[in-house]
Amino acid sequence: MPRLLLLDAKWDGELKLTKTLKDHLKKTKIKSIDLFASTQFAEIENLLKEFKKLKIKVNIQKAKRTNKPLQILGCDCYPDSFEKTLKSDMILYLGDGMFHPKALILAVDRPITIFDPISDKIKVVDRKDLQRELNKKKANLKIYLNSDKIGILVTIKPGQQYFLAAKKLKQQLEKEDKNAYIFIDDTLNPSHYENYPFIQCWVNTACPRIGTDDIVNINQPMINLRDALDPSRAFVELEK
């Protein structure tokens, strides 16, 4: 097995309280922040000092799948992905792109404020911005419950491999008199799904964002493993 070196690829700029961010914080009159960042923007010492000067309390916690407090991963996208409830006046994400803040939107039904230090822009997003994904997720859950032939997708990538859980789900489905088939691949490629037209609904056991972000781009219904194991909880979480 080769050895592995992970390099954070930190942003080469300096993270600071810009006028844009300061004006936004003043305008919203918030007193506390739940703060998250991607690893590229995790050097926040200066920013914390500035927040203190503004008398804003900053709450930082470690999300379930991350290795460090503050950081958020795309797979921390469920209500139980956090040790503590996010109840500050504002949930603030530092970083560029939408992949990580989308995890926060999926996990909590609250507006997420994104501060992009590169463009010095602020954007506020919420579940309305994910309506297509959430509607499709709900529709797919209903199809799953009414399907008799279910395909369970397993990747061999070690970080996303849930073969045992797939076998457990297959057993669970067979107890419900359904037919379940386990499909194995390295990278899950949607173009392969159409070769198995007998599958009425797919269950993705790899990255949970496949079962949220990617479902709007494929014709076949698909849900995530967590939702397949407990569809009732999945419906409740969609309403949260």
Binding site: P2, R3, L4, L5, Q40, K64, N67, L225
Partner: peptide, 22 residues
Amino acid sequence: MDILNIDLVVQWGHNKFNKEMW
């Protein structure tokens, strides 16, 4: 990668994570 005798894989942009167990 062992098939190709690669002895070091270097990935940028990410760090360690905790795999969820089911």
